[in-house]
Simulated assay, not measured.
Amino acid sequence: MLAQIVLFDGFDPLDVIAPYEVLHAGGLASDGALTVELVSAEGPREVPSGIAPLSLRAAARLDPARAGLVVVPGAAGRMPDGAGPAADDSIPAVLARALETALTPLLAEAVGRPRVCVATVCGGSLLLASAGLIRGRAAVTHHEGMEALGDAGALPVPARVVDDGDLVTAAGVTSGLDLGLYLLEREVGPQTALLVERLFAHERRGVVWRAPA
Rank of each mutant, 00 (worst) to 15 (best):
Y20D: 00
D63G: 13
P48I: 08
D88K: 11
A52P: 15
Q4R: 09
R210Q: 05
S30A: 13
L14T: 08
W209H: 08
L107S: 03
A201H: 06
P105Q: 02
E46N: 08
T101I: 08
A96P: 01
R204D: 00
G165D: 07
L95P: 10
D88A: 15
G124Y: 07
A102M: 05
G43W: 12
F11W: 07
D9F: 14
F200G: 00
V157W: 12
A86M: 05
E144P: 00
E37F: 00
A33P: 03
L133I: 13
A58G: 08
A170E: 01
L107N: 03
G84I: 04
Q191K: 12
E187R: 15
A52R: 15
G189H: 09
D89V: 04
P190I: 00
L127R: 14
G180F: 02
A211S: 14
V140I: 06
G82I: 15
H143M: 06
V161N: 02
S55E: 01
V208I: 12
V16I: 15
V111I: 14
S130D: 15
V94Y: 01
T101E: 06
P114I: 00
A65L: 15
G27S: 09
G172E: 11
V94R: 10
L179W: 13
D81L: 15
C122M: 00
Q4N: 10
V6G: 08
T104R: 13
C122Q: 00
G176R: 09
G82A: 14
G84S: 06
I134A: 10
P53W: 11
A193Y: 01
A154R: 11
V118Q: 00
E185R: 15
